[in-house]
Design a protein around this nucleic acid. Sequence first.
RNA 1: GCCCGGGUGGCGGAAUGGCAGACGCUGAGGACUUAAAAUCCUCCGGGGAUUUUUCCUCAUGUGGGUUCGACUCCCACCCCGGGCACCA
Length: 631
Amino acid sequence: MLDDLKQLEGGWPERVILMQQNWIGKSEGAKVRFAVAGAAGAGPIEIFTTRIDTIYGATAIILAPAHPLVTKLLEGSPTRAETEPKLAKMRQTSVKTEDLATMEKEGFFTGRYAINPFNDEKIPIWVGNFVLMEYGTGAIMAVPAHDQRDLEFCQKYKLPVRVVVQPLEGELAPDAMDTAFDEHMQGKLVNSGPFNGLSPIEAIPKMAAFAEQKGFGKAETIYRLRDWGISRQRYWGTPIPVIYCPKDGMVPVSDKDLPVLLPPNPRLTGEGESPLAGTPEFVNTTCPKCGGPARRETDTMDTFVDSSWYFYRYCDPRNDKVPYDSAKVAYWFPIDQYIGGITHAILHLLYSRFWCKVMRDLGLVKHDEPIARLFTQGMVQKGGVAMSKSRGNVVGAEEMAQKYGADTGRLYTLFAAPPEKDLEWSEESIEGSWRFLNRVYRLIERHANAVLAVKDGKVDAAAASLKERTLLRKVHQTLRRVTSDFETRWHFNSAIALIMELTNDIYAQEPLEQGVRPEVRKEVLELLTLMLAPMTPHLAEELWEMMGHTEGLWKARWPSFNQKLAREDEVEIPVQVNGRVRGKVKVPPGSTEPEVVRVALLLPAVAQHINGKRVVRQIYVPDKMLNLVVA
RNA sequence: GCCCGGGUGGCGGAAUGGCAGACGCUGAGGACUUAAAAUCCUCCGGGGAUUUUUCCUCAUGUGGGUUCGACUCCCACCCCGGGCACCA
């Protein structure tokens, strides 16, 4: 899963890839076994370290309170009487993950010693609250000179500090350290027997190999990622198709009896075991093997199981034989574009990737990754609280639909922020979207009859009046830019801004009855409606019908813009002198540099700023910009 | 501590090295109305000059750099948000 993240680069947001990388948490290091001195039956203790090169500097072994060896070590220990209560307290204190980082380091000496296999040194075995049973082996070697946490712990409990890596410049004083020296890229090993003089980078593989050769350790890679326990004590979930028989043990439900369905009338008490356990007609069954009485598994699967592969079914939703036809999935997959909240960055999207690997290994799918491109859209917030499935609607959708209609809500969410950004809901701003849609409605309502009367929709552009040309140009320019905002950039907010601008421009040309033929009005208003349709489908459908269409707009294709009509008669080019705008000239598009310069020099403001100085350079970006550099 | 984002008017935001502030919200003034709602029109970053017109100047977190030209690219710093976190 880690390696295949590379396949997602470019298609997935970088931060999601990084979050998954961190979550998987690959860590390369070594495991080393320390024998326990004198205690029969206890040990050895296996520790995990990424810095085996510092092992000569280990001055203690520290175990997690939950480590299984702790109890054994304490048995018959001289200090048992005082340490056992401490252990009990440590095990009892439930530590919140958030507090871990700031929590005071606590520990106690077990009274036992371990033998460092590298130098046969006897070092004390401690128990420390900062060592986690869930990570690595639940036991560490404390190297105070080269690990900040170990340094703090050892200084607190007066354990010795021994420097085993000296920096290339300066020398560390073990008794006066307040910051551990943990740079592994630089330094030379000291006090490390045969490994003296090596750099940590050289020493790490050598010392791991040495440990393996001597049989007390080896290089190993561990992961932070934990097992996924998929069972839940819930009703809503997929039943786990397993039967427990007193004679045959755990037996899978036979294929012909799949799927196992949830009982329709569960007793939901909110107490005790899974709701299914309280439903005898579900629980009691017969063993598929021996036919004798047996019980069903009553836990259900985590809903993440379903969300990890539901999308395959979309390729073949009516298949009643198998979940999907492989050929269909092979055709459609991987998913070209997946859209979801950033909240799914690790759980759902990691499980889905995992599930895909399992299916691939079972031969059920052919691809390595289920989702080629991922877009994480922002969340709607109100007062900093995100609107989501788990938190609920912070904005009343019903209420809003009642007041403004669903289309206004859609338009507003798209308009107020770019799609990848979180959006702070504003009751005031939504009014603007509502007003805009009303403006569009009134406009089309006003011209509906004229448009309806148009028989032949063909627009004769050559015969267009000035007013008509202005309108046609604007609408095709808008269409060109909206198309690009939709297709290549997903900038719905700026696309809407363009459509608003177009609407404003059409209003500015009112009354259209004067000088704008009905077929031109039809063209302009239909394109306006088509552009709005993806965002306000209900309204657009109604407007479409008002303009005489009997077939639904949803069947219409996205229009293509007319290059010729979109072209400007003249372009306004800012004229800069030394990079500052001093005037503007209007020229036909495609004018040559000398032509533009000639007109530009006629501008009084430009002439004034040149003021006798020599133009040493001129930069002309066709139809965009002219910059005259004077010295 | 490590790793990512992001800082533009009163607010949401626009500007893919080429006129900073499009579009919208808020606010102010006006038209229509007996009145209100709705609608329509005008203005709306700071400072300065100016009689209207208009012009100059500063301004995209701060300071440098690259460039004819920087919100945009590069370097350093500050602040905010997010992810992971005694991970050995």
